Structures are given as structure tokens and as C-alpha cells.
Amino acid sequence: MGRARTFDEDAVTRSALGAFWEQGYSETAVPELEDATGLNRSSLYHAFGSKRGLFDAAVERYLDEVVRPRLAPLLADHVAPGALGDYLRDLREAMLGGLPELAANGCLLMNATGSSLGHDADLQHVVTRYHADLRAAIGAGVAAHRPDLDAAAARDLATACTAMVLASMMIVRVNPTAAGEMLATASRTLG
């Protein structure tokens, strides 16, 4: 019979998330994960199977704690007319220092797509699902905010806003001011 776990798996994935988010998957060595989590290699591998298993758990934590709560008002059964404007404003504030990890490191998923994991089918699936959720949320926000638009115009506006959000997440790490301006432009584009 194996030993019972003596650690909090949520705390471990949260600590690993911080390391991966700051340095990236490839650049985060197992000894750094040991330092971040307080667990040794054997315990990490026993609990998560591999460094990649721990990364996958950290990605789910990122989605659950950072991404999905922000999108929830836009994916609700009833979307308030100002929900998309609120999302863009709150994201801009987070990027300009309200969420230090996002301001300093950008989007964990966007960063991972530019790394050695970018060609990994599992990561591609996660990022594709994230993009679909983001696009659906922004589309719902556009529909609530601009009911006067026809379907084609609403689709184009949602696509443009989605593109500006994704671009801001890519550039925030090196130019937070430009990221903030992209999100301000997205807000102004809503009309």
C-alpha cells in the first residue's frame, strides 16, 4: 500500500503555475519546480506523472483562476449590455499592474504556443478551446452591447475585439503600455 499524500495538490499546482508562468515550460527546470513547490522530484513525478503532467495541471489552474472567472459574465445566460466593456476595462487594469503575473509575464497559454510546446497536439487543443471560449464570450458581449448590428457586423466587431485582446496578451510582457492601448482601442471600437 502506498503512502498517503502529505501535501495540498492545489497549493502545489498553484506554486508550479507561478514558476511556469514566469519562466515558461522549457525554461523551468525540475529543481526550480522542487524549490517552488517544496516537493522533491519523486513526489512531483508520483503525483503528476512528469514535468509535463504538472504543467498541464498548472494550465488548468490558470484557466480556472485567471481566465474563466473573467469570462463568466460574458458566458452567462443573460449578458449585461456593459459586460464586454467591463471585461476589457478589468483586463486592461490587470495588465497595467492589477495582476502582477499577467503584467509581467503575459498570457501563459500564448507564451506556451510560442515555445517548444507550440506543436504539441494537447496544448493546441487547450489553446483552440480557449480561443473558442474567448471568441464566444466576446461575441455574446458584442450582441448584448450592440443589438443594433446585423449578424455580419457583430461577427466582424467580435473578431476585431478578440484579436485585440489576444494581441494585448502577447505584447504585455514587453510593452504594457501598448497592451493597454490595444484594450482601450477595443473598448472604443465597441461604440
Rank of each mutant, 00 (worst) to 15 (best):
G2M: 11
R3Y: 08
R3V: 10
R3M: 13
T6V: 11
F7A: 04
F7N: 08
D8N: 15
T13Q: 07
R14D: 06
A19N: 01
F20R: 03
Y25R: 02
V30M: 15
L33E: 01
L33S: 02
L39F: 04
L39Y: 01
N40E: 10
R41W: 02
R41G: 01
L44S: 03
A47R: 01
F55N: 01
D56V: 10
A58F: 05
Y62H: 15
E65Y: 04
E65N: 06
V66T: 13
P69Q: 15
L71A: 06
P73H: 02
L74S: 11
D77V: 08
H78E: 14
V79H: 06
P81L: 09
L91W: 11
R92Y: 02
E93F: 04
E93L: 13
L99W: 05
L99Y: 09
P100C: 10
A103K: 07
A104L: 10
A104T: 02
A104S: 07
C107S: 15
L108Q: 09
G114Q: 12
S116V: 11
S116Y: 04
L117T: 03
L117M: 13
G118K: 07
A121T: 09
V126I: 15
H131V: 14
A132Y: 02
G139Q: 07
L149H: 04
A154K: 06
R155S: 13
R155V: 05
A160F: 04
A160T: 13
T162S: 13
M164P: 03
R173T: 12
R173F: 00
R173G: 08
R173H: 06
N175C: 07
L183R: 10
A184G: 11
S187P: 00
R188Q: 14
T189Q: 11
L190P: 00
G191P: 06
